[in-house]
């Protein structure tokens, strides 16, 4: 399953709650959630823990728009909108954590 998160972990618990539920699968960070995958963010350690059992992707255009294109946490895979489409296909279902 693909979990899509669109909120910054600093003021919304969507990503944290998703990580506590999802035992396996893939996570795509879009919109304000891209901050979670940037170096030095308070959430970085939790994200790294999750990367042990979940594959994490980030939407590059959202990262670039926010001036954070140069601080992506290693191991997180950047995709464009085409890559976003591919992820929704390679996973049988997807859930947007609104």
């Amino acid at each position: 399953m693909l979990h899509i998160i669109n909120k910054s972990p600093s003021n919304n618990s969507a990503l944290e709650n998703c990580l506590s539920i999802a035992a396996s699968g893939e996570i795509l960070l879009i919109e304000d959630a891209v901050y979670a995958a940037t170096k030095g963010n308070a959430f970085e350690a939790k994200l790294r823990d999750a990367m042990g059992h979940l594959k994490v992707y980030v939407l590059q255009p959202d990262l670039d728009a926010r001036g954070m294109g140069d601080r992506l946490v290693e191991g997180v895979t950047a995709v464009d909108y085409g890559g976003f489409v591919d992820l929704t296909i390679s996973n049988n279902t997807c859930q947007s954590w609104l």
Binding site: M1, I21, T93, Q95
Partner: peptide
């Protein structure tokens, strides 16, 4: 349970 769904 979530993993078993078709549409979420």
């Amino acid at each position: 349970l979530m993993d078993q769904q078709d549409v979420v």
